[in-house]
C-alpha cells in the first residue's frame, strides 16, 4: 500500500462523507414533511414532489445556465404540488393519505413524461464548498466538499426548531396540528394554515429534489430517486416530529446508504446485498422500534389522521 491510500480508514470517512452527501435530500424532504405533519396533515406525495423538483431543477439549470435558478424553480414546482395537495385535502371528506398516494403516482409519471428531453443533456451543476483544503489527504478533502444546500438545510433545522417553540407562527402551526377545535376557537382558519404548511413543505421537498439532480449524483435520470421521498416519511416519524432529530436521522440514513459501497471498496464483499439494503432495513427496524404499544408516538401531532 502506498501513501495515498487509507485502507480501513476509508470506511468511516466514506460513511461520514456519504452521510452528508446522501443525507441532504433526506434532510430537506423530512424537514418539509415535519412542517406539514405538524399542521396535522400527511403528505405522502413527497416522492412525486422530490422527482418533480429534480427534473424541474435540472431542466431550468440546463435552459438558463444558472443552477441556483434551477433550485428556486424546483422549490416553486414543489410549492405548487404541495399547495395542490393542501387544497384538495381542504375539501370536505377528502383523505390526505389517498390524495398523497395519488400525487405520488401522478407526479412521477408526469415528470417522466416531461423530463424525457432532459435525460441526455448535461446541465450546469451546483458548486461545492471546499471545507477540507486544510487537509493534505485527498480523501478527507473530497469528503469535506460540501454543498451549500447542506448548510442551508442544517440552518433550517435549527431555525424550525426555534420557530416551533418560540414564534407565533410556529405555535399556530402546532396548535392547528394538535387541536383543530382549539385553533378555531382562537380564530385561526385551520385549512388555510394547513395549505400554507403543506405548500411550504412541498417547497422544501422540491429543493431536496434539485439537490439530487444538480449536485449528487448530479444528473437527471428516471431512476434518480429510488424511494428516497418515501424513506423520508419514515424518517419524520423516527425523528418524532422534531426538526433537530430530523437532521440527525437524515445523517444516519445517508451514512447507511454509503455502507455497502464503502465496505466493498476495502474488499469486504460478502453479503453486499444486505449492506445495500441497509437504509431500508433501518427504516423497518425504526418502525418496529418506535411502535411500542405503551409509549407509541408520544409527540405526534394530535390531528394526524394516522394517530387519531
Amino acid at each position: 500500500m502506498d501513501g495515498t491510500t487509507l485502507g480501513w480508514w476509508g470506511v468511516p470517512i466514506a460513511i461520514l462523507a456519504g452521510a452528508i452527501r446522501v443525507g441532504t435530500p433526506f434532510l430537506f424532504v423530512s424537514l418539509g414533511e415535519c412542517l406539514t405533519e405538524k399542521s396535522g396533515r400527511i403528505n405522502l406525495g413527497l416522492e412525486g414532489i422530490l422527482v418533480m423538483g429534480a427534473m424541474v431543477g435540472y431542466a431550468v439549470s440546463y435552459l438558463s445556465g444558472n443552477p441556483w435558478l434551477g433550485v428556486l424553480a424546483a422549490g416553486c414546482a414543489g410549492l405548487a404540488l404541495g399547495a395542490l395537495h393542501g387544497m384538495l385535502c381542504s375539501l370536505p371528506r377528502v383523505n390526505d393519505i389517498a390524495v398523497g398516494i395519488g400525487l405520488m403516482l401522478f407526479g412521477t409519471g408526469f415528470v417522466f413524461f416531461l423530463g424525457k428531453p432532459f435525460v441526455q443533456p448535461q446541465a450546469p451543476t451546483l458548486p461545492a464548498l471546499h471545507l477540507g483544503s486544510w487537509s493534505t489527504s485527498p480523501q478527507i478533502e473530497s469528503a469535506l466538499q460540501i454543498n451549500a444546500l447542506f448548510l442551508v438545510g442544517v440552518a433550517l433545522a435549527f431555525a424550525m426548531h426555534w420557530a416551533f417553540r418560540s414564534t407565533r407562527w410556529g405555535l399556530v402551526v402546532r396548535m392547528v396540528g394538535d387541536s383543530a377545535d382549539a385553533a378555531r376557537a382562537m380564530g385561526y382558519t385551520v385549512n388555510r394554515v394547513r395549505v400554507l404548511a403543506t405548500a411550504a413543505g412541498g417547497f422544501l421537498a422540491g429543493v431536496g429534489g434539485s439537490y439530487l439532480s444538480l449536485y449528487y449524483p448530479g444528473s437527471w435520470n428516471e431512476g434518480l430517486s429510488s424511494g428516497q421521498g418515501l424513506m423520508a416519511l419514515a424518517l419524520v416519524i423516527f425523528a418524532r416530529w422534531r426538526p433537530l432529530h430530523c437532521f440527525l436521522a437524515a445523517l444516519l440514513f445517508g451514512g447507511a446508504s454509503a455502507i455497502g459501497p464503502a465496505l466493498q471498496s476495502v474488499g469486504i464483499s460478502s453479503g453486499y446485498y444486505l449492506f445495500n439494503a441497509a437504509p431500508y432495513v433501518l427504516t423497518l427496524g425504526i418502525m418496529i422500534a418506535t411502535c411500542s404499544p405503551r409509549r407509541s408516538l408520544t409527540s405526534a401531532p394530535g390531528e394526524l389522521s394516522v394517530t387519531r
Binding site: 487509507l6 476509508g10 446522501v22 439530487l212 431512476g223 429510488s226 459501497p261 466493498q264 471498496s265 453486499y272
Partner: peptide, 27 residues
C-alpha cells in the same frame, strides 16, 4: 481490479457512492 456490485442495473446514488469510495481508496 476492485469490483463493487451495486445490486441492480440502475442505482445512480449507489453508483456515485461506489465511485467516490473507490477514488478514496486510490483507484
Amino acid at each position: 481490479t476492485q469490483v463493487i456490485f451495486t445490486g441492480d442495473w440502475m442505482m445512480p446514488v449507489k453508483e456515485v457512492e461506489a465511485t467516490n469510495s473507490m477514488i478514496d481508496q486510490g483507484i
